[in-house]
Design a protein around this nucleic acid. Structure first.
Lengths: 278, 278
DNA sequence: ACGGTTTTTTGTAATATTACGTAAATTTAC
DNA sequence: GTAAATTTACGTAATATTACAAAAAACCGT
């Protein structure tokens, strides 16, 4: 909400901007103010405040307060602020957890569910699945392999560029290549995607929208996390990629129903011996 | 808020309980109702509603709505409910994202910051670092290796039980073994931890509290996620493990200050050639 | 155990507050 | 200088709150 106000600041009229400034300045105080009070303190008239509220898809001032309250509640993590040099561990911890929550919320509101459904379909139809990822996304690929291994479908994961190319080129129609990349610009990944497609396989990309990789893929699940990967290690984007894959694996498990239950039971049995009791 | 209402249900008078029942029944609808409307639908008088609101430390009905809105915003994830067999993709997605947020919040409130600080110290003092993990935690170990690689310290990761034992046995005082396991009962992991300690190395466990592994370690960062790993694939626990490692790596980066900046610059430069432009 | 008294609870009505729509005035842009 | 847009002033309608009175429930003595 506050972000929404901030971003549309320049589309507001002078007086409305005064209101916006006040709201952004002390949002929580607005909740306990009447429209008259706010108008007075922001030095505008009441209808101006009302118009301002309507601008942000509220039916009026009270409704605006309600919406504001909601966005404020989930927003101790309004601090998109990155970790500062002076932060001690407690601050780092707080900021990163907040950022994680915020990222999940963003993902939740930004992802297209239809795409997810189509992605699940791709998995269900696949004769065999290959996961490609490099760097940080390499471990995501590996993790994905682990999870999809539980289904009765041949699945591999490659972190190595050369192996990826070779495997991609050898793929056939009915195969699925899942290419994971945060930036969507890693040359090797885009090439692998292209090879796989040329070979007739479907390519599912898990990456940011509107990137070379997303264009090279059959279907893209967009994971847009505002994270400065140039400077920092991709942390949130990788968490979100994993989350997306969790959703997909759960979706596939659902769709497949119980036909692979015996397979699961065997895996579980095989693991039993490796566990200790207290 | 809703929980608060529910718990104090028996201290309310008959009419007020009617109001409470209605609010609990359809809280979100209350937000768009006037006091008159709510009074009518709950079959009580308006002042009763007002009194009801004051009971929950609100100055009046509008204020109550505000407070309710806030608690509702952070609380769609009251549903700890697991994914059901009948759920379609949208529901699965919603539930998993909610669960992720909830898990992060739980982690945030449950983790001991002092332990994190000591863990960061362990990393800073380490001459070399080895990450051990199997199964789902294997990819976490790999990911951790990636991140810590950016510091100028020798770091390895093993997913293979045999290699883990060998490496653990060969460790020396001043070395650090980081053992990652969701269950804390994986025999190979506990053994690796024991070997490493016997060899004189420090052992940091990232696992649930009060498990064989946590007892075998020098220091344990407890990651307690209520997740039925017996039946389902560990999803949230792995996300939380990664988050903890993110915090640790950021903490180490902080503590080390800028002394490894040139090292970072070299890595970045090496990556540059692998990226595509639009 | 019953009827009267006190306390609590509830509803009615009046009042005060708050927000919204309309129309006029000011400002701004051309 | 005029037309468009934007802001403001005012009045009205809706909404919430207070005060008070009636009803119900609990308490108590006989």
């Amino acid at each position: 909400m506050l972000a929404q106000i901030e971003s549309s600041l320049d589309q507001l009229s002078r007086s409305e901007r005064k209101v916006a400034a006040f709201v952004l300045g002390d949002a929580s105080r607005v909740l306990s103010m009447s429209i008259a009070r706010l108008a007075q303190e922001a030095d505008v008239s009441e209808p101006t405040v009302n118009r301002f509220c309507r601008t942000f898809s509220a039916t009026g001032f009270p409704d605006f307060k309600l919406k504001l309250a909601q966005s404020l509640a989930s927003g101790p993590m309004l601090t998109t602020a990155m970790v500062a040099d002076t932060d001690a561990i407690p601050e780092i911890f707080a900021k990163l957890t907040d950022k994680a929550i915020r990222s999940v919320q963003d993902l939740k509101s930004s992802i297209d569910v239809l795409t997810l459904e189509r992605a699940v379909d791709l998995f269900c139809q696949a004769r065999q699945v290959a996961f490609f990822g490099m760097g940080a996304s390499g471990s995501v690929a590996r993790d994905a392999q682990h999870k999809f291994f539980r289904f009765n479908v041949p699945v591999v994961a490659y972190e190595d560029g050369l192996m990826q190319r070779m495997h991609a080129a050898a793929m056939k129609t009915g195969d699925l290549a899942v290419v994971i990349s945060h930036t969507g610009r890693t040359r090797a990944m885009v090439e692998a995607a292209t090879f796989a497609r040329e070979a007739g396989a479907s390519v599912l990309a898990i990456t940011r929208s509107d990137t070379p990789l997303s264009r090279a893929a059959t279907l893209t699940v967009s994971v847009d996390v505002d994270e400065n990967t140039e400077l920092y290690i991709p942390m949130m984007s990788r968490l979100m990629q994993l989350l997306v894959l969790d959703v997909l694996v759960t979706g596939v498990a659902q769709k497949r129903g119980t036909d692979f239950q015996p397979h699961l039971a065997r895996i579980k049995q095989a693991l039993d011996g490796t566990r200790l009791s207290d």
